Amino acid sequence: MTKGRPHQIDIHVGNRLRSRRLVLGLSQEKLGERLGITFQQIQKYEKGTNRISASKLQAAAGVLSVPISFFFEDQQISAPDGLVREADEIGTFLISRDGVTLNRAFTSIKDKRVRQTIITMAKALADDSGIHSADAKRDSSSAPR
């Protein structure tokens, strides 16, 4: 850890806090009120610049209706650098407003065929950066013959 830079675990916990807050539709101000702190403190927690104490993490878990382990799920301990970067990019998107909105809309679609059509369309629209072509290879290798 470099002095002055947040620790990766603090950033991860902050990202998980933000993602759950957004999924529940809570503002930083509302979450802060429920935890007895300012929205500025929530911002610092979410960025990882301030560490969340054990007691505040317990309180946040209660307010957000998740177990404390939720904040540590999906934490990459040791993985090849490329995989960590890809996971970070995906995680960053998932906690963005667009990511949360897309996730909510997609998961509300009940028809599996419609969801699959949307996935196929998204892959077709994506830049040919190798990501969706790797998915296609994987999909075709697992498809029944």
Results as ranks from 00 to 15, higher is better:
Ala126His: 11
Asp128Leu: 14
Phe106Asn: 02
Gln43Tyr: 02
Val23Ala: 13
Ile131Gln: 12
Asp135Gln: 13
Ile9Asn: 08
Val66Leu: 05
Phe72Lys: 02
Glu29Ser: 12
Asp98Met: 07
Ile11Gly: 01
Arg115His: 01
Pro80Asn: 07
Asp128Ser: 14
Gly36Thr: 04
Gly14Cys: 01
Ala60Trp: 06
Gly91Asn: 04
Val114Trp: 02
Val66Asn: 04
Lys3Leu: 14
Ile95Met: 15
Leu22Ala: 15
Leu35Lys: 00
His132Phe: 14
Ser108Cys: 05
Leu102Tyr: 10
His7Gln: 11
Asp111Val: 06
Phe39Tyr: 14
Pro80Phe: 03
Met121Phe: 13
Phe70Lys: 02
Ala126Pro: 05
Lys56Trp: 05
Ile95Val: 12
Ile90Pro: 02
Ala105His: 10
Asp128Cys: 11
Gln28Tyr: 06
Asp74Arg: 11
Thr38Asn: 09
Asn103Glu: 10
Val13Leu: 02
Leu22Thr: 11
Arg113Leu: 08
Ser65Ile: 07
Asp74Gly: 11
Gly130Thr: 02
Lys137Gly: 13
Thr92Phe: 10
Ala60His: 04
Leu22Gln: 14
Asp74Ala: 13
Arg18Trp: 09
Ser133Pro: 01
Thr107Ser: 10
Val114Leu: 06
Ser78Met: 15
Ile9His: 08
Met121His: 13
Asp81Thr: 10
Lys44Pro: 09
Gln76Gly: 09
Gly82Ile: 08
Pro6Thr: 01
Ala124Leu: 05
Ala105Leu: 12
Ile77Leu: 13
Ala134Lys: 15
Pro80Trp: 03
Glu29Asn: 12
Leu22Arg: 15
Asp10Phe: 04
Gln28Leu: 07
Asn50Glu: 10
Lys123Gln: 11
Gly14Asn: 04
Glu89Asn: 09
Arg34Glu: 14
Asp127Ile: 07
His12Gln: 04
Ala105Asp: 07
